[in-house]
Simulated assay, not measured.
Amino acid sequence: MTARILFLGPLADLARTPEMEAVTPLDWAALLSLVSQELAEELQGERVNVACAGKVLADKTDLLAQDGDEVALLPPVSGG
């Protein structure tokens, strides 16, 4: 049972991959333990959002991905 994790934009550069699979159920602490310390610190920043199963989470620490879910890690949007 797995979920697909998508690293978007510069988060893919930090992860050194655009996506990975993780065993489910997958909560926030488990997600942070799967990635490098540098990426975990970036993900914990308030400007990074998390979507699970197509819905952006109001509080990313509420993440609980189940089998077949897609978790998208959304980097801060830059203006211009």
Results as ranks from 00 to 15, higher is better:
Ala53Thr: 05
Gly68Leu: 00
Gln44Pro: 04
Leu43Tyr: 03
Met20Ile: 15
Leu73Asp: 05
Thr24Asn: 00
Val35Ser: 01
Gly68His: 05
Leu32Asp: 06
Leu34Ser: 08
Asp59Thr: 14
Leu31Met: 06
Ala15Ile: 10
Val48His: 06
Val77Ile: 09
Ala15Gly: 09
Gln66Gly: 01
Asp67Arg: 08
Gln44Ile: 09
Gly9Lys: 09
Ala3Gly: 05
Glu38Gly: 14
Leu39Phe: 09
Leu11Pro: 03
Ala30Cys: 00
Pro18Tyr: 14
Glu42Tyr: 10
Leu26Arg: 02
Ala53Ile: 07
Val50Asp: 02
Met20Glu: 12
Ser36Phe: 11
Leu43Arg: 05
Thr24Lys: 02
Asp67Cys: 06
Ser78Arg: 05
Phe7Trp: 08
Arg47Asp: 14
Val71Cys: 05
Val77Pro: 01
Val77Trp: 04
Ala29Asp: 14
Ala15Met: 10
Glu38Val: 13
Leu74Pro: 02
Val50Thr: 12
Glu38Ile: 12
Ala53Asp: 07
Ala72Met: 11
Pro75Asn: 06
Asn49Met: 14
Ser33Glu: 08
Leu14Gly: 11
Gly54Ala: 04
Thr2Ala: 12
Cys52Pro: 01
Ala22Ile: 06
Glu41Lys: 15
Ala53Leu: 00
Leu34Val: 08
Ser36His: 12
Met1Thr: 13
Leu32Phe: 03
Glu70Thr: 15
Met1Ile: 11
Asp62Leu: 09
Leu6Gly: 07
Ser78Gly: 05
Glu19His: 14
Ala40Trp: 01
Leu43Asp: 07
Ala72Ile: 11
Pro10Arg: 14
Gln44Glu: 11
Gly54His: 03
Arg47Leu: 13
Val23Leu: 07
Cys52Glu: 08
Arg47Val: 12
Gly68Phe: 03
Val77Tyr: 06
Glu21Pro: 09
Gln37Val: 11
Val48Leu: 04
Gly54Phe: 03
Asn49Pro: 05
Pro75Thr: 07
Thr17Cys: 10
Leu31Lys: 06
Thr24Cys: 04
Leu64Phe: 08
Ala40Phe: 04
Leu8Asn: 15
Ile5Ser: 00
Glu19Arg: 13
Val56Met: 07
Pro25His: 00
Gly45Arg: 15
Pro75Leu: 01
Ala12His: 08
Leu39Gly: 08
Leu31Glu: 07
Gly80Asn: 03
Thr2Val: 15
Leu74Lys: 04
Leu8Tyr: 15
Ala58Asn: 13
Asp69Gly: 04
Pro76Cys: 10
Gly80Arg: 03
Val56Cys: 09
Glu19Gly: 09
Trp28Phe: 01
Phe7Glu: 09
Pro76Val: 11
Ala51Pro: 00
Asp13Arg: 13
Thr61Leu: 03
Leu57Val: 10
Leu63Lys: 06
Gly9Glu: 09
Thr61Ser: 07
Met1Glu: 12
Ala51Phe: 04
Ala53Asn: 11
Lys55Asn: 15
Pro10Gly: 15
Ser36Thr: 14
Ser33Ala: 14
Leu14Arg: 11
Val48Lys: 05
Glu38Cys: 10
Leu43Lys: 02
Leu14Cys: 09
Trp28His: 01
